[in-house]
Amino acid sequence: MNEVPVIISRLTESFLLNCRIFALTLVFSLPLGLVIAFGSMSRFRPLRWLVRTFVWVIRGTPLMLQLIVIYFGPGLMNMSFSWPGGSSGRFVAANVAFIINYACYFSEIYRGGIESIPRGQYEAGMVLGMTKSQIFFKVILLQVIKRILPPVGNEVITLVKDTALARIIANKEIIMMAGEYTNKGLIWPLFATGIYFLVFVGVLTIVLDWLEKKLSYFRA
């Protein structure tokens, strides 16, 4: 029975991969989503059309498929670009897929939030001589953040569990690791992975509640 600590330490180690994908995806997809949101609200029609089509494709196809296409696509299509060999290539490819996918979802949440801010807030800023960027960053943004926190929180929690999809291109994340034990006839490590996710999401929930409380000092 002294294999238990070994298994747990290997599960923990592989869960760190999930955590790294989670963190990197958030760091890049949250701001990228804003850029995409601006594109989808652009007054320049071709750009708006292009961006909205892109968002439609990304949201309309399975993330699992996107992982496969992004990882194997360049090689199969004989592109000059190729991912680095070995585990680092698989890790980077997984992150790229997650970032693009989540940025598209975030962009739609941002767009909804931005468009929900009353016109009067912009106009009040304009008659006070503020520039467009001052109005956005000093007046609009915080109101948008307050409004979109719950749906963004939902996406963030979904992302925690979606990181397990990275195994489809052989990233050794926690469920893939547990699966190796299942193949040897040991089922409890697979169940144990659930606890990792539960604890992680529990902490996230606390953080999200705290953020929401932080922003409850005003009403918008």
């Binding site: 009353p118 009067g120 807030q121 106009e123 009040a124 304009m126 008659v127 001589g129 007046v139 915080l142 109101q143 307050k146 000092y217 005003f218 009403r219 918008a220």
Partner: peptide
Amino acid sequence: RLHFGLVFQNFNLFPQ
């Protein structure tokens, strides 16, 4: 536009 000030019907104060 700074020559003019405008007070709106529904105030439009910045809530934050």
